[in-house]
Nucleic acid binder design. Structure first.
Lengths: 183, 183
DNA sequence: ATAGTGTTTCGATAATTTTCGAATCACTTA
DNA sequence: TAAGTGATTCGAAAATTATCGAAACACTAT
């Protein structure tokens, strides 16, 4: 089996299946009824329903001659982020602290204030460093523009990037410092 | 143009693109670097990036020789529900009241209490009616099982469905009453 | 300007997905 | 048990999508 998230997203990324979902959102239904509503062959509707059932988007239950399909409401309350972006590292104690710091200083994608404590400031700067590709030369202007997205005092942020050893500056050219250099 | 939601979901439902997203989540990057990391041709990576850029998942900005791609963080904070399930009707005054009532009585997909006021009770029952397909015969047991998912006192719910004229009962067979019968 | 970057488009091919008729299956009712 | 219902699977055709080499493009730097 591949990735469960991909299978779920594939199940959602088809016009016919979205039509079925929206019909079921209003009212439970069954294969023949859906096929008639959508002007499709029952085999086609069945194919789509099975695909969605496999990933937990819908559930089925027989009632006399019919098999009634229902939306699994819980499946729709996930964000794209938690579905798509894998956390990678295990949330250990350091990681927990890191997340708390980031949650405190970032609001709506922007920096509320620049941390005064060095430890916290480094965590925030390390996060901002993700916006800079490794091995790429950035001009001072480019660095400023990206940092300005997060806080009006981009000059301090830029200076601190150098001071904390996260970036190097050489004749107005800024570069990300690779910390995992095996030299 | 088709549906924007479908295009966005299609852009997300591919293993290679998810790989790219997860790399960009850690660090901005550019075509050649991504191609090298993923062992793919630059043309292929470009194809995927363009596809994601069209639906607003990533943004690009030139820096010297390179075009740096970044994740558009805002795009990832949407739930599947708001992406997939279309509201259909315009939120007029009645609809607003309806939503408030539903939000008040439903918690985590279950009914906190059965509304005493007739107007509110009908709104809640109408919502529960979505779980029953039209034109289908349900046994009393089947009706009870579905209603029990929402409140322990499924007997009251079942009785009220009949009392409010939302379902009919005929020799232990329950059916949804179709309100838009043009007779 | 010109040579040299990395990026994008184009065309073709491979791989995957959607669709549906026909056959089969699962279940209900008489 | 047998006949009748709707659901599902199967096989094949049609439609869509992913991949990549080659060529064209956009930009930088000499």
């Amino acid at each position: 089996m591949k990735n469960a998230a991909i299978e779920l997203l594939k199940a959602l990324s088809d016009g016919t299946r979205l039509d079925i979902i929206n019909i079921l959102a209003k009212q439970d239904s069954y294969v023949e009824q859906l096929a008639a509503t959508l002007s499709l062959a029952p085999a086609t509707v069945c194919y789509h329903l099975k695909k969605m059932e496999q990933v937990g988007l819908v559930t089925s239950a027989r009632s006399q001659f019919y098999i009634i399909y229902s939306l699994n409401q819980k499946a729709f309350d996930r964000t794209l982020r938690e579905l798509v972006i894998c956390p990678a590292r295990v949330p250990d104690a350091d990681e927990k602290y890191r997340r708390e710091v980031l949650e405190h200083f970032f609001r709506y994608g922007k920096l509320t204030t620049i941390p005064v404590q060095r430890k916290k400031r480094e965590i925030v700067l390390q996060k901002l460093l993700e916006r800079f590709a490794v091995g790429i030369d950035y001009t001072e202007r480019e660095v400023s523009e990206i940092l300005a997205e997060y806080h009006e005092d981009y000059c301090t942020l830029r200076r601190e990037m150098i001071a904390c050893g996260l970036m190097t500056r050489d004749h107005e050219i800024y570069r990300v410092v690779q910390k995992d250099d095996k030299t």
